[in-house]
Design a protein around this nucleic acid. Structure first.
Length: 732
DNA sequence: GAGCGATGTCATGGT
DNA sequence: AAACCATGACATCGC
């Protein structure tokens, strides 16, 4: 590395952007203050970020020092400002750990590094000669982030997969077809199968087309992990590897979501997701090395977005389309630029590299800085100019994840359909300001349930009242359950009632009616213990005869007698039996008295064997009745709790799904930014002759100390292979 | 009259 | 062992 650094000291004003992605839960301030003091100085430095050495006068400085402000090239100056703005724009991607650092490095005039020296590299040191190009504006981050995501959410549901024609900005932003996210669209879609198939094809093709780049990108990301964001890996990691060559597929997004989790809540198993991703990438890397190059290379013809930088000489470019799309995609560029395979392809004049020549700013901006990124997310076939000559689609190792993601979406949609959950409405609510998607879902879902719950509550109250009209003891059943009441359940039920969270009117009414009588209350009106049931089985015939058959003459008496008859009908079987047997105390006492008191009570009276038997039966049945009521109540509570748990889980699932989409989109956008900045930097690198470096021969690479090196492609490839091998060996 | 929910009761097993 | 509780199964009632 030291030798490489020597080469670096040569001359040319260099500009390197270090973009840190994927920082999960890494505080920016901490990162700046403790981990990388040089970066902090650079980032937080004054307006020196705009100080730039001229690109074309590279030999008049030593190690980047002593650059006079007057020597600033205006072109570079504005370029730096633009890059700075882009860097700041990164804040909106809700990845607080992300930092973009552009360092200016001067190359020693004596150096003679060129493409003819494959074993040598140009080290872009981050040491003292670096110029501050970034000016983090943390104060604006939060709001911008929020706003950005609100917009993203809107985009999420608004983007339709362009089967043909020009792509829109939303297409670029989302990357994935709308059918994946737009639930309402799916609900209304008549030909669901066809659409799903189309969407699957799109994404499959897309994933396959960029499989190689994805594999590299993800693999490197997974390997470097957090270190990639703030502290560069100890061992040099090729920036070519680190920079994604294209956006990831939805399936990939699933796997990449977790690293972007920056909020306080991290519902996903980050470790597991990364492991899955790594395993996938391993398989993918095996395939893409051989086929991705061709596919990526052919993509421009099929993809109007035009990976212009990597265009093969024989690949026609629709300039109009490219320019048009350039105006659409602000941050896009050819991701294939980062693909070693692509870059190694014959470029129209390796020494010219028109797109990267700063003087050709129009070309640069139109072809790289603003290249439409739709091609990153949609297969060429979907862009209307599919290249039939493109090789067969890469096998999609991410198909499994893709399918899983789609299934998740679909299942969510199904849930929404089944339960009246309106994803669109929830999404709208979510877009406003409620970050708690669960609440948003609730708001979309609960009104009906709440109202029904309230109605249930009122109806249950009325039901209870009506019951109490027939049985006054029932009115107190909620508050008091008697000696053996199931108090814990009662509390649970009260809680549910107060919350009104569960709109299960039938069950609720059922429950309310199930609330059993309070024996203590019954003791006051023992004859009103039961309403209408007259279970006469297992009844002793004698008791039935004596107790249950009032004389017919009693039916034709006065109002008192009628009332007595009514009360008589309200008596339970055991009440009748007790009265028939002339039991000298109430059934309530028989049932609820403790054993000792009960025995004492029995001992006070001279009772016949039949009476004692009846009393014991009454006590047994009474207790069992309450036990049965408790049992039923408990069973019902269990069911209600399970249903509530299911609802909660469904809400959580929907919320997690939305978060996943958001994080994936954020990750995708960050990668796009990285690609763009990478190309910006790389395109402005010049050798001692003022010629741009060929991307097929050189690549930017992160160093362990935070610096960025310009090393030959061969070295980068070797290191990349080593990087790929490590996890495999580890896994073995 | 059948179906169904609510309730009571019994038998049984556990505490 | 007695008392109590929990619960499945069944019966009965009322709608």
């Amino acid at each position: 590395m030291l030798s490489l650094k020597k080469y670096l000291t040569e001359g040319l004003l260099q500009f390197t952007i270090l973009l840190s992605l994927i920082g999960v839960r890494v505080d920016v301030d901490t990162y700046l203050t403790s981990q990388l003091p040089p970066l902090r100085e650079i980032i937080l430095g004054p307006s020196s970020a705009y100080t730039q050495t001229q690109f074309h006068n590279l030999r008049n400085t030593l190690d980047g020092y002593g650059i006079h402000p007057k020597s600033i090239d205006l072109d570079n100056y504005f370029t730096a400002r633009r890059l700075l703005s882009q860097v700041r724009a990164l804040d909106r991607f809700q990845v607080p750990t992300t930092e973009v650092n552009a360092w200016l490095v001067h190359r020693d005039p004596e150096g003679s590094v060129s493409g003819s020296q494959p074993n040598s590299g140009l080290a872009l040191e981050s040491s003292s000669g670096l110029q501050d190009v970034t000016g983090p504006d943390n104060g604006v981050r939060e709001s911008e982030t929020e706003q950005g995501f609100s917009e993203d959410l809107e985009d999420l549901g608004a983007v339709a997969p362009p089967v043909s024609g020009d792509l829109t900005k939303e297409d670029i932003d989302l990357g994935a077809g709308r059918e994946v996210f737009d639930y309402s669209h799916r609900q209304k879609e008549q030909d669901v199968d066809k659409e799903l198939r189309d969407g699957g094809e799109q994404e499959d093709t897309w994933a396959g087309e960029g499989a190689e780049a994805l594999a590299r990108d993800l693999l490197v990301d997974g390997e470097t992990g957090e270190s990639f964001t703030a502290q560069f890996p100890a061992d040099v990691a090729s920036i070519t590897e680190a920079v994604p060559s294209e956006s990831e597929s939805p399936a990939l997004q699933n796997s990449l979501l977790s690293p972007l989790l920056t909020g306080t809540e991290s519902p996903f198993d980050l470790e597991q997701q990364w492991q899955d991703l790594m395993s996938i990438m391993e398989m993918q890397a095996m395939e893409v090395n051989t086929s991705a190059s061709e596919i990526l290379y052919n993509a421009p013809s099929g993809d109007p977005l035009g990976t212009n930088y990597s265009l093969a000489p024989n690949t026609p470019i629709n300039q109009n389309v490219s320019l048009h799309q350039a105006s659409l995609g602000g941050c896009g560029q050819d991701f294939s630029l980062f693909s070693p395979e692509v870059e190694s392809l014959p470029v129209a004049g390796s020494s010219t590299l028109l797109p990267l020549v700063p003087s050709n700013s129009t070309s640069l901006n139109s072809t790289f800085g603003s290249t439409n990124l739709a091609g990153l997310f949609f297969p060429p076939q979907l862009n209307g100019t599919a290249n039939d000559t493109a090789g067969p689609e890469l096998p999609d190792p991410l198909g499994g994840l893709l399918d899983e993601a789609m299934l998740d979406e679909i299942s969510l949609m199904d849930l929404a359909i089944e339960e009246g959950f309106n994803p669109v409405q929830a999404s709208q609510l979510e877009e406003e300001f409620d970050s708690d998607s669960g609440l948003s879902l609730d708001s979309s879902h609960s009104p009906s349930s709440l109202s029904s719950s309230e109605g249930s509550s009122s109806s249950s109250s009325s039901s209870s009242s009506s019951s109490s009209s027939a049985s006054s003891s029932a009115s107190s059943s909620f508050s008091e359950e008697g000696a053996v009441g199931y108090s814990s359940d009662s509390e649970t039920l009260d809680l549910e009632e107060s919350e009104g969270a569960v709109g299960y009117q039938p069950e609720y009414s059922k429950f309310c009616r199930m609330s059993y009588q309070d024996p203590s209350q019954l003791s006051c009106l023992p004859y009103l213990e039961h309403v209408g049931h007259n279970h006469t089985y297992n009844m002793a015939p004698s008791a039935l005869d004596s107790a249950d058959l009032p004389p017919p003459s009693t039916l034709k008496k006065g109002s008192k007698e009628k009332q007595a008859d009514f009360l008589d009908k309200q008596m339970s079987r055991d009440e009748h039996r007790a009265r028939a047997m002339k039991i000298p105390f109430t059934n309530d006492k028989i049932i609820n008295l403790p054993v000792e008191e009960f025995n004492q009570l029995l001992s006070k009276y001279q009772l016949s064997e039949a009476q004692l038997s009846l009393i014991r039966d009454i006590r047994r049945r009474g207790k069992n009745k309450m036990a049965a009521q408790n049992c039923r109540k408990r069973k019902l509570d269990t069911i209600l709790n399970l249903e509530r748990d299911v609802e909660d889980l469904q809400r959580d699932k929907a919320r997690l799904l939305r978060e996943k989409v958001e994080f994936l989109r954020s990750l995708r956008q960050m990668k796009q930014k990285v690609q763009s900045l990478y190309q910006e930097v790389f395109g402005r690198l010049r050798d001692e002759n003022g010629r741009p470096y060929s991307p097929s021969q050189y690549a930017l690479q992160y160093a362990g100390d935070g610096s960025v090196l310009l090393i030959p492609r061969t070295m980068a490839d070797q290191q990349a292979r080593r990087q790929e091998r490590k996890p495999k060996d580890r896994r073995k």
